[in-house]
Design a protein around this nucleic acid. Structure first.
Lengths: 225, 225
DNA sequence: CGACCATTTGATATGGATCAAGCGATGTGG
DNA sequence: CCACATCGCTTGATCCATATCAAATGGTCG
């Protein structure tokens, strides 16, 4: 349940003026209808199968969505960072679970309110459609990653993250090796080994395990096939 | 180019009353705006990167969408059969290529017309959104397939096809082993071997290579994890 | 009938998984 | 403030599922 999930971390504090997230004026109506909430590291935001009454927009921090198969294998569907919207469903249940990877602030928006608004405002309707469409291309790209070799998957992942989490010249990874492995359909050991291989090939540098400098983008792009 | 692609197969024959495809009254407005076209086996319907000015609805036959990586690996995104809509894009270019697997009849609908209509008719807008959403869940399911073992992928594929192409007790496969392999991220040999394994395990029967009887669904479902 | 193409089957190779230590950073209790 | 437990990550050794290479079989069409 949503209520329960929220109780995991903190009080909902809908404080006065809703914060405006950088860029993305396309989804302005979403921003205006939400209430900000905080989630602690590893807190559940919602679970698979729960009613999808809300959608979410990341203000700060990182969120993962995932599914767990009966035998425990976990597939991470996506990582969401500042500005990204997640949890928007066509059906009435969430098809993935969502957890905060880091301490995270998230705008929570009632879906029924948006859908009702979309009924009369074709602009809002288009925005909702666009969100679903953006998600679709993301997932399609993800599929293309999953058919590649380990090196290609890791290179692809690094390039993807480089566009989203670069701080003074280095990619800042908020997620663990296990998260990366479960996103790429590999094991933690393979991810680790592949990173060291890339480091030895002078394609990247690893100042620390969560901090990666892309030394040779074209080499990574080449792997990206 | 669309024009060129179409010339591959046959003349566009927009004959009088548009045929109404079984069920799916949800997309009625789409049905009403389209012109039927025929495509020969293996004919290209559109290519990756071409302008996405049209969307398509299968009347009969089967269509595959796919991408080819620089080194020739091909990933099939989906198989579309009677009633399925494909080629609907958010951007202005097709992100996959599309080909007829069998002789196919397809309703071709101008996207701009639909989008314009959606602007004023929130029902049409919702239908377009729903189509994108349906595609999204299909792709998400596909991802879950791609992280599994060969047996699980093939079992999952058979169950998926069973819901869409069963004729008097047998699944009728319109696509080749190569198509299946490229859909599942396996080789043709692995697909073939897996099928014989499943046959030996009495889970399926193979009267012919394109005809499969599901003898033990629960066994397949179990593999589906 | 013969040629061609799709599929199956067989033999071997290999990329990534698994099993198993080691190592470094982080935090906790004494 | 240090010693030690813990956790996340890396590295090493081995195994195995699937790929690759190769050939045989079967089905289809001119």
């Amino acid at each position: 349940m949503l209520a329960q999930a929220h109780s995991v971390s903190s009080k909902a504090t809908p404080k006065g003026p809703v914060p405006v997230v950088a860029g993305h004026r396309v989804e302005s109506s979403i921003d205006l209808m939400g209430a900000p909430m905080s989630f602690a590291r590893n807190a559940e935001i919602y679970g698979e199968g729960e009613p999808a009454d809300y959608l979410y927009k990341v203000i700060s921090g990182t969120v993962r969505t995932y599914k767990v198969l009966s035998d425990g294998r976990r597939q991470i569907g996506a990582f969401y960072m500042a500005g990204d919207v997640f949890g928007l469903e066509m059906g009435d249940e969430h098809t993935f679970s969502a957890e905060a990877i880091t301490e995270a602030r998230v705008l929570v928006v009632k879906r029924s309110a948006l859908v009702a608004l979309a009924e009369r405002d074709s602009d809002v309707a288009r925005q909702l459609w666009a969100l679903t469409g953006r998600e679709l291309s993301r997932v399609q790209d993800h599929i293309m990653l999953l058919i590649k070799t380990a090196q290609e998957r890791v290179a692809g992942f690094l390039l993807e993250m480089a566009d989203r989490a670069t701080h003074d010249g280095a990619v800042e990874l908020p997620m663990s090796r296990q998260d990366i492995a479960d996103y790429l359909g590999l094991t933690i050991e393979t991810v680790s080994r592949t990173l060291t291989t890339l480091e030895n090939a002078a394609a990247i540098e690893l100042p620390s395990s969560r901090r990666i400098v892309l030394r040779n983008r074209s080499a990574l792009n080449r792997l990206n096939a």
